[in-house]
Computed example of a mutant assay.
Amino acid sequence: MNIRQAIRQKRRDLSPQQRCNAQQIIYQKIKNHPALNQAENIAIFLSFDGEVDTKPIIEYLWQQNKSVYLPITHPFCKNHLLFLKYTTNTPLIKNHFGIFEPELNVNNVIPFVQLDIVFTPLVAFDERGYRMGMGGGYYDRMLANYQQQQILPIGLAFSCQKLANIDNQPWDIKLPEIIYA
């Protein structure tokens, strides 16, 4: 079993109580995050395969009158993402990875540079802020120039996903912040 599979299994193996306790801490950290007050356009993902449940975060963002955007795999640019506005009425479809995403509607696409915060999924992370994703490089490509664009990427994870060190590559993007418990 490789490291990605092992960490994903650890994440899936969390008991309902462990998951609930950790998620409550994560949700509180997000609610108290200073950048959230100023942010208007927030990208987040729909949870998949034992990830931190993002539905309560999305509900909270809507209550705060934030615009929420979900990633979809770009239909023309291989291994790239687009972000579409997500509301309670947005139809969702399963993509080729089995992950729910909004149906493509060009009227709902936001240019990446207009996002304020990007909550980022990850399989594993280390203390330095390096993350290991699912292996497609989607988020690394998208976040390559996040500092110049004044976008704040924030990883979401459980403590069991933390490694001592990730063998990062030159193209891997270091996250400035990872919220975990």
Score class of each variant (00 low, 15 high):
I58S: 08
I58Q: 10
E59N: 15
L61H: 14
W62Y: 14
W62R: 13
K66L: 07
S67Y: 06
S67T: 10
V68E: 10
L70I: 03
L70T: 02
P71C: 07
I72P: 01
I72R: 07
T73I: 15
T73P: 06
H74C: 05
H74K: 08
F76T: 15
F76I: 14
F76G: 07
C77F: 14
C77T: 12
C77H: 15
K78H: 11
K78S: 09
N79V: 00
N79W: 00
N79Q: 13
L81R: 07
L82C: 06
F83D: 01
L84I: 03
K85G: 03
T87C: 11
T88Q: 15
T88N: 14
N89S: 15
N89T: 14
T90V: 07
T90C: 09
P91L: 06
P91F: 04
P91W: 04
I93Y: 13
K94Y: 15
K94F: 14
K94M: 14
K94V: 10
N95S: 10
H96P: 04
H96Y: 14
H96I: 12
F97E: 03
F97Y: 15
F97P: 01
G98A: 10
F100W: 14
F100E: 15
F100V: 10
F100T: 15
E101T: 08
P102A: 08
E103K: 12
E103D: 05
E103Q: 13
L104T: 00
N105A: 10
N105P: 10
N107R: 13
N108C: 09
N108S: 13
V109P: 05
I110W: 09
P111F: 05
P111Q: 07
P111G: 04
P111E: 06
F112R: 00
L115I: 02
L115T: 01
L115D: 01
D116E: 10
D116H: 12
D116F: 12
D116Y: 10
I117D: 02
I117A: 06
V118K: 02
T120W: 01
L122T: 08
V123D: 03
A124Q: 03
D126I: 02
D126Q: 03
E127L: 07
G129K: 04
Y130P: 00
R131H: 10
G135P: 11
G137I: 00
G137L: 00
G137R: 01
Y138V: 00
Y139W: 09
L143Y: 06
L143K: 05
L143V: 05
A144G: 08
Q147W: 06
Q147T: 15
Q149V: 02
Q150M: 10
I151Q: 01
L152E: 05
P153H: 05
P153N: 06
I154N: 05
I154V: 14
G155P: 06
L156V: 07
L156Y: 11
L156T: 08
L156F: 11
F158E: 03
F158P: 04
F158K: 02
C160V: 12
Q161E: 13
K162C: 08
A164H: 07
N165Q: 11
I166E: 01
D167I: 10
N168T: 03
Q169I: 00
P170E: 00
P170H: 01
P170A: 08
W171L: 00
W171H: 09
D172L: 05
I173R: 02
I173A: 03
K174A: 04
L175R: 04
L175Q: 06
